[in-house]
Design a protein around this nucleic acid. Structure first.
Length: 550
RNA sequence: GCGGGCGUAGCUCAAUGGUAGAGCCCCAGCCUUCCAAGCUGGCCGUGAGGGUUCGAUUCCCUUCGCCCGCUCCA
């Protein structure tokens, strides 16, 4: 396990060998945006290609995979980045992504305004002449918060705990929030020694805003999608009407999404422009639990089978209070990135059971939970839907069972850039290998799964003479013709060339030596074991192809 | 967005208010028969902008980026 591998070394390798560059680097870079270099683009394409093939191209809709409740169909989609603004209003992103944030000028802490909790308290003897204060708490639970407000108030007003009851008159039995109408001059933030240290709440736009049309004004505002999912929901009926698929089936899509992350950090992990690999799986409500289990387990296995170590990868079920407003169950596939604290993990993929939230939203309008916990259309002051839906009928009719229902949705949503980064981190190894004199020399090697390696095989003439380059070049061209990404290198000593390939994760090197010219054999070297086997040159392409098939 | 730290060659690191150096890497050539050999030569830099100064990589301001903490994370 690469326990002590630092992120710095991985970032340096990515730059040095052309995997990942900072966006617009010659202009000083742009925070939260990244470019994939010549090797990085191949690696990321291989990650996406593996996902697409496993989800769509290689899927057999006539057989039932192990663990699946039944056979099912899979189709792909590629939607526009910019969609009708109403899509984001109904999906809930428009409201959710406009967070109001407020900072404490004294303690330098930042709070989401709608998440502020505390209690109003009245004090009779007050030097400032305010008498009414809002004591904020940062405790995790309402019970702890109640106790915390008392402790914080005693400290703030310099009151002994036994005198608290007499000196402090609480205005509410439980914790409450504040609104922009409340006087912020009376608010005491956690740890502050003065009241009124809070800034006015400011809006954070987490969706990228753009304008449609060259002369577009405010009413032509649109958004770059913050997720690819909505394109699949709004095309649900199109797919159903044109593809002869029936529930259960899935729609998959890969593509760029955009979020104005407040703090882009940790290399490409939290980028503002990123690529998703998402799937929306539509199934009967009665079977949705079983399908959720199936996808949750299958997606976890996918990462394991592509080389992420089980000791750094985990499948974590969300706690009930952690679930999104629409979700009835969510599990994250998480990886212990080098930048994570011990015991901490970073999310690679979220597998969510979304119920009928999405299809209903696009029929009826934006949904919220009502007092009884049921999803209902959110209404404005006028009693009309706050964000009206399309009004189109997205109810599914099963002509076998004569049943009508809104399908439930299981959504495995993966980050292509995060997966790529995880594979890079996992595969990065530093070891020591003997040089020609037997002395141990440090080696950097990316032990990538061959399916993901940018270059599958390098052809290396042992020395640059006696016909070895010619024979090697011919073999190299044959690899190209066979569709196997390959590389030809006759520069520098053979050991150095092996190391170059190790560093970019090339699983195999083929060396043309003096014996090759005599008997038409070459040696095949394995990146991880360094073992070499000799085989006829006319068999080596089949051998590599077979190893790639696994 | 706030606070702290940091920006010198592709990488690692020197140096200086007065022509910016080294090692590695890379490229060319010689040599070289299996794991970063050697020799010769070559390419390449003070993040950006402004100010002070006769002169700024060095001092000051702004900006961009990176790291840590806070915050955020559908």
């Amino acid at each position: 396990m690469p326990s002590a591998v630092s992120m710095d070394k991985i970032v340096a390798l990515c730059k040095r060998r052309g995997f990942i560059f900072q966006s617009s680097e010659i202009y000083g870079g742009l925070n939260g945006f990244w470019d994939y270099g010549p090797l990085g683009v191949e690696l990321k394409r291989n990650v996406k290609e593996a996902w697409w093939r496993d989800m769509i191209t290689n899927h057999d809709e006539f057989s039932t995979p192990p663990g699946a409740p039944s056979a099912f169909s899979m189709v792909g989609l590629d939607c526009s980045l910019i969609m009708h603004p109403q899509v984001w209003k109904c999906s809930g992103h428009y409201d959710l992504f406009h967070d109001m944030m407020s900072d404490c000028r004294e303690t330098k802490r930042r709070f989401r305004f709608d998440q502020i909790r505390g209690r109003w308290v009245h004090v009779e003897k007050d030097a400032r002449g305010i008498h009414r204060y809002f004591i904020m708490t940062d405790a995790d639970t309402p019970e702890a918060g109640l106790e915390d407000t008392v402790v914080k108030a005693c400290k703030f007003f310099d009151v002994r705990r036994k005198d608290a009851e007499a000196a402090l008159t609480w205005q509410s039995p439980g914790l409450v929030g504040i609104t922009p109408k409340d006087n912020l001059a009376h608010v005491v933030t956690p740890g502050a020694t003065q009241p009124g240290t809070m800034t006015e709440p400011r809006e954070f736009n987490l969706m990228f805003k753009t304008t449609i049309g060259a002369l577009g004004g405010a009413e032509d505002a649109a958004f770059l999608r913050p997720e690819t999912a909505q394109g699949m929901f709004v095309n649900f009926k199109n797919v159903l009407d044109t593809q002869r698929v029936r529930v259960p089936f899935g729609i998959a899509q890969m593509g760029k999404s955009f979020r104005n992350e407040i703090t882009p950090r940790n290399f490409t992990f939290r980028s503002r422009e990123f690529e998703q690999m998402e799937m929306e799986f539509f199934c009967h409500p009665d079977q949705s639990r079983a399908w959720y289990q199936y996808w949750r387990d299958r997606r976890y296995q996918w990462y394991l089978s592509h080389g992420l170590g089980s000791d750094r990868l985990r499948l974590r079920d969300h706690a009930a209070d952690e679930l999104s407003h629409y979700s009835v169950g969510t599990a994250d596939v998480e990886y212990a990135f080098p930048f994570c604290e011990p015991g901490e993990f970073g999310e690679l993929e979220g597998v969510a059971h979304r119920g009928d939230f999405d299809l209903r939203s696009h029929m009826e309008g934006k949904l919220v939970r009502d007092a009884s916990g049921c999803l209902a259309v959110e209404t404005g002051a006028d009693g009309k839907p706050r964000h009206p839906g399309s009004g189109k009928d997205l109810v599914y009719f099963d002509d076998q069972s004569r049943e009508r229902y809104v399908p439930h949705v299981i959504e495995p949503a993966a980050g292509a850039d995060r997966a790529t980064l995880a594979f890079l981190c996992e595969s990065y190894h530093e070891d020591a290998q003997p040089d020609e004199k037997g002395a141990l020399q440090p080696r950097v090697v990316l032990k990538l799964h061959p399916r993901l390696s940018p270059i599958k095989v390098a052809v290396l003439p042992l020395v640059k003479k006696d016909g070895m380059p010619e024979l090697g070049l011919e073999l190299y061209r044959n690899f190209k013709r066979a569709g196997i990404p390959s590389y030809f290198d006759q520069q520098a000593a053979i050991g150095k060339r092996y190391r170059r390939q190790d560093e970019i994760g090339t699983p195999w090197c083929i060396t043309v030596d003096g014996q090759s010219l005599q008997d038409q054999t070459v040696t095949l070297r394995d990146r991880d074991s360094l073992e070499q086997v000799r085989m006829p040159v006319n068999r080596v392409i089949d051998e590599i192809a077979a190893r790639l098939r696994g």
